[in-house]
Simulated scan of single mutants.
Amino acid sequence: MINNDFLTKFSQRIFNHLNDNENIFISPQNIMTAMSLVLFGAKRETRKILSEFLGIDDNSKIEEFQKSILNDEVFQSLAAAWFRDNLVFENSYLDFLKRIECKSETLDFSDQKSKDLINEWVEKATNGNIKDLIKSTNENTALVLTSVCNFIGKWNHAFDKKKTKNSKFELSNGKTIETPMMNMKEEFLYAETDEYQMISLYYQSGYYMRIYLPKESKNSFDLEELDNHFAKKAEETKVDLSLPKFKMSKEYDLKEKFAEMGLGNIFSNKADFSGISKDLFVSDIVHKTFVECEEKGTVASAATGVSMALRCCVRMPKEVVFKADHPFIFTINKNNQILFLGKVENPND
């Protein structure tokens, strides 16, 4: 079974680059799904740069990762490759897509209806949570790679709606707002460090949300270090838990972010994706997400679209209090695989 440490490191790097005083919600697993489809066909310097960025290299490992992606009644993940209808693509790449059961379809990208077909597929696959992922296509579009995922998790211990009360939530700037706060007393896996309280709230089928609540707002966040500490020190503990309800939709221009993080090569004329087809470069990467957390459980969706164009254009007390009344970080996971990563800066936003 593939080791998911590379996904944890990838999650941390993206989060660090996005982290500011606003809500964040991304799916590192979903982004990796799409970007590893790109990496499979990268060659020479482009492959070196992209593999170092993603933390995965050998094509057999890429295929192993793709085949290890969770799919069950709680979490579903799909990928699709949309090819330009009059362009020749490498048979080895097409065979790879077949082996990982990636949907493949040819389109006339000069017709804007092609964009609508892709967006309809994404919207349907995410139960309507992600709309209009791809903004446009044109005669230079050669390939669009899309990955989607959908999560519907019911808590093992549901919150009682009657106990949900408006409570104060302190923002990073020191201001306070009123927000619906869910409350319960129950035993949870819990651990803490000098800087963080951590708790795992389990859904059905082994999925869980892990919440990292800083004791001070400016504490640094090291996901791998905190998870290692949790694995060693977490104990079943009676917790007086308060957690805000929250709902957010986010959109990220990852082309801009990834270029800032040193991935400029794949967006330039220097890009080499000859393992897919000749004269390709990445023209756009967009990532859209949705999450709603309430008394019964959590719904989350994500989609990533990678457009490629032709180069013609360029230990604890028996009871503790865990009151998430200020910004916190959370993940949704199974088997140590980070499916979603977020920060609640303002649950009302």
Rank of each mutant, 00 (worst) to 15 (best):
residue 162 K to H: 06
residue 182 M to K: 08
residue 160 D to M: 14
residue 180 P to Y: 14
residue 140 N to V: 13
residue 172 S to W: 06
residue 186 E to N: 15
residue 155 W to C: 09
residue 134 I to E: 03
residue 136 S to M: 01
residue 185 K to S: 15
residue 165 K to Q: 05
residue 167 S to P: 00
residue 157 H to I: 12
residue 140 N to R: 14
residue 179 T to F: 09
residue 169 F to T: 01
residue 139 E to F: 02
residue 134 I to R: 00
residue 135 K to W: 00
residue 153 G to E: 07
residue 134 I to G: 07
residue 186 E to F: 10
residue 140 N to Q: 06
residue 187 E to S: 15
residue 185 K to T: 13
residue 187 E to G: 09
residue 135 K to V: 07
residue 173 N to M: 00
residue 149 C to M: 09
residue 141 T to H: 01
residue 141 T to G: 01
residue 162 K to Y: 03
residue 153 G to W: 02
residue 158 A to R: 14
residue 162 K to L: 15
residue 135 K to M: 06
residue 181 M to F: 12
residue 143 L to E: 11
residue 169 F to N: 07
residue 144 V to W: 03
residue 174 G to A: 07
residue 152 I to T: 12
residue 151 F to R: 10
residue 142 A to N: 05
residue 176 T to R: 10
residue 133 L to N: 05
residue 148 V to M: 09
residue 159 F to I: 10
residue 172 S to L: 10
residue 147 S to Q: 09
residue 187 E to A: 10
residue 157 H to E: 08
residue 181 M to A: 11
residue 146 T to G: 08
residue 179 T to C: 04
residue 176 T to Q: 13
residue 138 N to Y: 05
residue 162 K to C: 12
residue 137 T to A: 03
residue 136 S to G: 00
residue 159 F to D: 13
residue 166 N to M: 09
residue 158 A to G: 02
residue 146 T to M: 02
residue 163 K to I: 03
